[in-house]
């Protein structure tokens, strides 16, 4: 069972995850009919910026994060922003959406000047996330775990970050055992997505470069 502290940690992270979202009007813009490569580019850039702000607001609510060294907080956020963005956008693509919406989103991304080489791994990742049928708690906890990665560049006090990540990992492990009793591999499969995210992170840097030049 969860200890009282673990329950508090879970609810704290879940509330923050539900509270801090991309503004509704911006999300709606994505579904408009207007399509031009420039508009898609601008909209996706604006979405990415808004997502970083939402990510920071979420992260500030992770118990213990604001007690970390200030520069380490920045190193963690900078190192995880792209992965957290892919994880969150995966949720958009896997949640039961009115049929048309996901195609509009996918079409918009495919027609925004991003080369196919980067789009395919992105949608493969969304598919593999979809197969896990993750609950909201799992998305929130996995996002926190991604951010609290002690091995990000420029992090100095790795032990302090590891202690925080360990606490969240333990909550996720218990949550999976409680809510997926017939799937002993579920927790391991969730963590497997984190390694997939790291390759997307690498792709993303190259993609931005090629996107800017084109």
């Amino acid at each position: 069972e969860f200890s009282q502290d673990q329950l508090t940690l879970l609810n704290y992270i879940l509330d923050a995850y539900n509270k801090h979202r991309i503004p509704q009007d911006m999300a709606k813009q994505l579904l408009q009919e207007k399509f031009s490569e420039e508009e898609n580019f601008l909209l996706l850039t604006e979405m990415a910026t808004s997502h970083v702000q939402v990510l920071v607001e979420f992260t500030k609510n992770i118990p213990g994060f604001q007690a970390l060294d200030h520069e380490d907080q920045i190193a963690l956020l900078k190192g995880s922003a792209v992965e957290a963005m892919f994880l969150r956008s995966a949720q958009v693509f896997t949640r039961k959406r009115p049929h048309g919406h996901t195609d509009v989103l996918e079409d918009r991304i495919r027609k925004s000047g991003i080369s196919e080489e980067y789009i395919t791994p992105m949608f493969n990742f969304y598919k593999s996330i979809g197969e896990l049928q993750m609950m909201q708690e799992e998305h929130a906890l996995l996002t926190a775990i991604t951010i609290l990665s002690p091995d990000r560049a420029y992090v100095r006090d790795q032990a302090a970050v590891e202690r925080l990540q360990e606490a969240v990992l333990e909550v996720l492990r218990k949550f999976c055992r409680l809510r997926h009793p017939r799937e002993p591999q579920h927790f391991a499969r969730l963590l497997g997505r984190l390694t997939e995210l790291r390759t997307l992170n690498h792709h993303h840097a190259e993609m931005l470069l090629s996107w800017r030049t084109s």
């Binding site: 601008l42 850039t45 604006e46 990415a48 910026t49 808004s50 970083v52 702000q53 920071v56 607001e57 500030k60 200030h70 907080q73 920045i74 956020l77 900078k78 922003a81």
Partner: peptide, 21 residues
């Protein structure tokens, strides 16, 4: 607009205050 700021600038600004204000 915020989208011209670099990633680190956006993070620093958001960490300091509530960015939405």
């Amino acid at each position: 607009p915020a989208s011209n700021l670099g990633l680190e600038d956006i993070i620093r600004k958001a960490l300091m205050g509530n960015f939405e204000d």
